[in-house]
């Protein structure tokens, strides 16, 4: 159990607690959710354009990096934070949501100029609120049923995207994202700039059955985190669980069913790694 689950989960994982889903009443009563939602809908500019140019080049420098890092942390913590989830968990989240909408992906818009790629899955009240931001939704918003949303997530997982659930501010669940490195800004914040609070690892970690592995190498190309290497000497894939985020991308492609996901708390080596 991560810190968020202990604080906001009520005995469950934080993203499965029905109290944390944004309804219209909750949205109207809490000012911080409104501010966060407004920031998300315009963050193509704020988070990824001008602001980044000032702060991010200094993050990897020794002393200055610490000072800048603290400032970035205090702003980002209020905006967008998330956790990687496997496909089954994403479907469980969608079971709790009452409405869903597919929106054009913010990161693909701002970095590739593509507005047709609809991979941002907003649900609950935020799906409705997105209408009021026509520039964010320039590719159009698709209002879909929960069943269709589950299919969309499944399709994303088959294509090898990392699925993440995002809350702004924590613990209010606002959407599911399917993305890849280096386009995804959030994956990039974590992997390139070491902002580990922006995206947490999943509650699961991979369990690799080395006897079943034939060394076909399909999982190696699917891993976005560089956790898998294909050993030439023994002719099998080797999984580094310290680097594993538990997204499950390697489990969908394995024809021998050598990869499976186990709860992180059962593996002592990575129990405290988030």
């Amino acid at each position: 159990m991560c810190q968020w689950c202990v604080e906001h989960g009520g005995g469950k994982k934080w993203y499965l607690n029905t109290k944390n889903y944004i309804t219209k009443e909750l949205f109207d009563s809490k000012k911080e959710i409104q501010t966060a939602a407004d920031i998300i809908f315009r963050d193509t500019e704020r988070l990824m354009g001008i602001d980044m140019k000032k702060a991010f080049p200094h993050l990897n420098k020794p002393i200055l990096g610490k000072i800048v890092g603290k400032k970035v942390r205090s702003t980002l913590e209020k905006r967008e934070q998330g956790q990687v989830v496997p496909l089954e968990e994403a479907k469980a989240i969608l079971n709790n949501a009452n409405m869903a909408a597919l929106m054009p992906c913010v990161c693909r818009q701002s970095q590739l100029g593509i507005t047709e790629a609809k991979y941002c899955l907003c649900f609950t009240y935020l799906a409705d609120y997105g209408k009021e931001w026509p520039d964010f939704a320039r590719g159009g918003i698709n209002y879909i049923s929960i069943e269709e949303a589950k299919e969309a997530v499944e399709r994303g997982a088959q294509q090898g995207y990392v699925i993440g659930v995002y809350g702004a501010p924590i613990p209010f669940v606002n959407g599911i994202c399917m993305c890849e490195y280096p386009i995804c800004m959030i994956l990039r914040c974590r992997l390139d700039y070491g902002l580990d609070y922006v995206l947490r690892k999943a509650e699961f970690v991979v369990n690799h059955d080395i006897d079943k592995c034939t060394g076909c190498g399909k999982c190696v190309s699917k891993c976005q985190f560089g956790a898998i290497i294909l050993s030439r000497t023994i002719g099998k894939a080797l999984h580094n669980i310290k680097k594993c985020f538990g997204c499950g991308a390697c489990t969908y492609v394995c024809e021998q069913n050598a990869n499976s996901l186990v709860p992180r708390e059962q593996v002592p080596a990575v129990k405290e790694e988030w």
Partner: peptide, 11 residues
């Protein structure tokens, strides 16, 4: 992916 596009004013 070093390019970014953004509107010139705060939206």
């Amino acid at each position: 992916a070093a390019f970014r596009t953004y509107p010139p004013e705060v939206r």
